[in-house]
């Protein structure tokens, strides 16, 4: 990671929708993450995926109930972090 860990912010979120993080839901995350100033990561255990890449996110394999950590590198992106967490917890409106 480029930045010092003190500027990192992370928040936990649990996948709430039946189908989990599939292409449609991942694309909603990717759209939000694309607006961030710096990197946004989704972490599941040791695995880390670039939130702007649907493909990367799909490879995390997140069915319903998976606990994820959303991680940002720039505090300016805090609002995006919140939006992503809300989106995930709301079950992507499915």
């Amino acid at each position: 990671m480029v930045k010092a860990s003190s500027t990192e912010t992370s928040k936990e979120a649990t996948i709430a929708n039946e189908l989990g993080l599939h292409a449609r839901s991942a694309s909603q995350v990717a759209r939000l993450a694309a607006k961030a100033r710096s990197n946004v990561w989704l972490c599941k255990g040791d695995h880390k995926a670039d939130a702007t890449s649907i493909m990367d996110v799909l490879t995390l394999e997140c069915p319903k109930g998976t606990k994820l950590v959303v991680l940002i590198e720039d505090p300016e992106d805090n609002e995006i972090l919140q939006q992503i967490v809300t989106l995930i917890e709301s079950g992507f409106g499915e």
Partner: peptide, 8 residues
């Protein structure tokens, strides 16, 4: 559409 431009 988003996938088309996916980094990966």
């Amino acid at each position: 559409l988003v996938l088309l431009k996916d980094k990966m």
